[in-house]
Structure formats: C-alpha cells, structure tokens
Amino acid sequence: MSELTISKFQTFKRYLPALTLALILPAWELICRLFEVPSYILPTPSDIYQAFIAVDLDRWGLHLWATLKVALVGFALSMLISIPLAMLMVNSKYLSKTLYPILVVVQSTPVVAIAPLLITMFGSGEAPRLAITCLITFFPLVVSATTGMMATPNELIDLSRSLRAPRYKEIFAIRLPYALPHIFSGMKVAVTLAIIGAVVAEFVAAEQGLGYFIQFSTSFFKVPQAFAALIFLSIVSLGLFKLVHWVQAYFFGWTMTKEKA
C-alpha cells in the first residue's frame, strides 16, 4: 500500500463510528415504520427528535443542571474522601486491614437498594442524593488510588528513606503522583457512575433532573420524550468521561505514555 492510500484508509477508519451511526438511524426509522411499531414501545428517531424540540431549552437546562450538580458535587466529595482514605490505608497496614473489609461490604450492597433508606434518613433535600452518588463512585476511586500507590517501586521508597525525608513526603511527592495513572482510570469509571448515582437518586425522590424527567415522561406514556432525555443523559455522561480524559492529557500528559523501563 502506498502512503497515500494508507492515509486515506486512516481517515476512513476515523469516520467509521459516525458512518455506522448514520446507517443505524435510517434502519431504525425504517423498521419502526415498516412494522408499525407503536411509539410507546419503540419510538422512531424522528419521534424522539420531535419530542426533544417540543420541550423548551430552558426546561432541558433546568433538568440537566439539577442532575449535573448532584453528579459533580457528589463526585468531588467522593474524591475528597477516597483519596485521603487511600493514603491512610497505604500508610498503615492496620488501617487497611480494618477498613478494606468494610469497604468491600459497602461496595457489595446494591446502592439502588439503599437509596430509599437514605432518603428516609436524610430527608428529601440534596443530602441523600449526594450520599447516593458518593457511595456509588467511592469504591473505584479508593481501589485505584490504593493500587497505584502500592505499585510505587520499592527502590523509590528506599531512596526517600535513605534521604531521611519525612514520611508525608514519601506519600505526597512519590506515592501519590505515581498513583495518578491509576487514579485517572478510576476517575473515568467513577465519573460515569456519578451520573448513574444522580439518576438513581432522582428516581427515588426528586422534583427535577433528567432521571426525574424520564420517570415523569414514562408515567404519562410520553415515551419519545423519555428517550430524548435518555439520549441527553448518555451524551452528558460521555462528555464527563471526555472531560476527565482531556484534563489527564492536558495537565498530566506523562501519565498517558507508558514508562519504558
């Protein structure tokens, strides 16, 4: 293959996902119309689009903001708790042996099942929604941060000790940065889970938010509108994932290239 055809092939490969989508949408539309599928079972893409523009942008914005706020604040809180907790666990064998089983138990309890309990415990304000989001995003963050910090080469720890550096420096200047590639992987998982957490919370108790809007729409059999909200949610989730990726690439470029040695 000449260089030109290779580069053409590369361009083709790049647009392949968009091309797939461009083929699926008309096929979806066609099948729904051909077999006269009722819109409350599976709406056509054009139905969904119509439902989307039928709702005011302001209203979309209101619901989007409600969900995004819970997801982002919950995610930030989760980071603030999980990273220091991981540092403590790495620093002390005793703490890690005590805390780890508790974390595993919390993680194995389905958060969706705890959600109604949390609402009764915390009332119907923002607090239970943030708690649910925290609970669901917490585990991948703790595990990735702990794994990353434990993966620090022993030689570097020896070097730090041979320099008689204070122990907090061993954690902050060596272990924590070393864990960043792992932490970013955990963040990518956690940030999409944060949206799930916010939506679950809205299912249980909320007056606004995209999750609430989906439930509201389906209860009135406005299925195309629910689909529109669902697609909106996926796009938001994807956007957050991309945002984490972008922050990593821009500020922590070195975490993207694997060390050779």
């Binding site: 080469p153 030689e155 570097l156 020896d158 070097l159 940065p177 070393y178 070195w254 975490t255 040695a261």
Partner: peptide
C-alpha cells in the same frame, strides 16, 4: 555520604 544506583533506573516519570 552514600549514593545508590538501583537495578532499574526508577526515575520519577513526571
């Protein structure tokens, strides 16, 4: 007074 060179370079990648 002691400098150590390890088997792996163990540099800080950042």
């Amino acid at each position: 007074e002691i400098g150590i060179v390890f088997q792996q370079p163990t540099l800080l990648p950042w």
